[in-house]
């Protein structure tokens, strides 16, 4: 779902006409609880690797606190919704770090392969696992090029009310969908990064021409991970 500016403006105009009393500014604001998430938005992140500090994992901690993601000190089977990786250029030896999480693809391979439809993409571009119908086959984990998903290997407790998670199902970054629905207009990782003063993660609506994320994407080069796969990810990187 890659709308160009003209299409986007057209859509908003149609939406504005179809809903009397709706002003354009309201689009950027929170939906009412009874309103459905729509294609008018496409939520995403812009990650500036140049600003991401080596040794800092504030985003990782914040995400896991926010979503009640706990482990058992068993690295191979503990879940990770977001992780920091350090990469080194093969030719030049240049080293940098960046956070990695679900890329919220427009064409997510995890959604393609899921036999029950538990792995799905919401209208506003957020890729989620419906744990109610997840049978724990892990085919999505085989298919995801970003290794974004974790299988819950053990019994869970002390889950957050907004982030249910249980043994035998698969989970991954939800783009803090509960915060998005609440209208926070940010994610736990982006908030934490900002608080640390790095501002390497920016959350926003890729469809909203007036949003900061859109403006920054339009004014400087950026890339997707595995662009060769043409998945049109919702998470973009600069400084890479």
């Amino acid at each position: 779902m890659s709308l160009n500016r003209r299409e986007f403006l057209g859509l908003t105009a149609v939406a504005a006409l179809a809903t009397p009393g709706l002003r354009l500014v309201e689009l950027a604001q929170a939906r009412a609880p009874e309103e459905t998430a729509t294609k008018l938005q496409r939520w995403g992140l812009l990650i500036d690797a140049a600003k991401c500090a080596d040794g800092c994992d504030a985003c990782v901690t914040a995400c896991h606190v926010e979503n009640g993601v706990t482990g058992h000190n068993r690295p191979a089977t503990d879940p990770q919704w977001i992780r920091k990786v350090k990469i080194k250029d093969r030719q030049t030896g240049y080293v940098q770090t960046l956070p990695l999480m679900c890329q919220h693809c427009e064409h997510p391979p995890c959604v393609d392969v899921c036999p029950t439809g538990a792995s799905f993409k919401r209208a506003d571009g957020i890729v989620l696992v419906d744990k109610h119908i997840c049978i724990g086959c892990r085919y999505c984990m085989m298919a995801c090029p970003y290794k974004a998903r974790s299988f819950i290997h053990e019994d869970t407790k002390d889950q957050k009310p907004h982030a249910p998670r249980g043994k035998g199902t698969v989970e991954s970054c939800t783009l803090c969908v509960h915060k998005v629905d609440r209208g926070d207009n940010t994610t736990a990782c982006a908030e934490a990064c900002k608080k640390e003063g790095h501002e390497a993660i920016l959350f926003g609506d890729l469809n909203d021409a007036g949003s900061e994320i859109r403006k920054r994407l339009a004014s400087a080069p950026s890339t997707q991970l595995r662009p060769d796969l043409k998945l049109n990810t919702g998470v973009r990187y600069t400084g890479l």
């Binding site: 896991h64 009640g68 993601v69 706990t70 482990g71 000190n73 002390d158």
Partner: peptide, 13 residues
């Protein structure tokens, strides 16, 4: 329950 979960998280990360 926060402190307990946090402790586990530090190890996790």
């Amino acid at each position: 329950n926060e402190p307990a979960s946090l402790e586990r998280l530090v190890r996790l990360s």
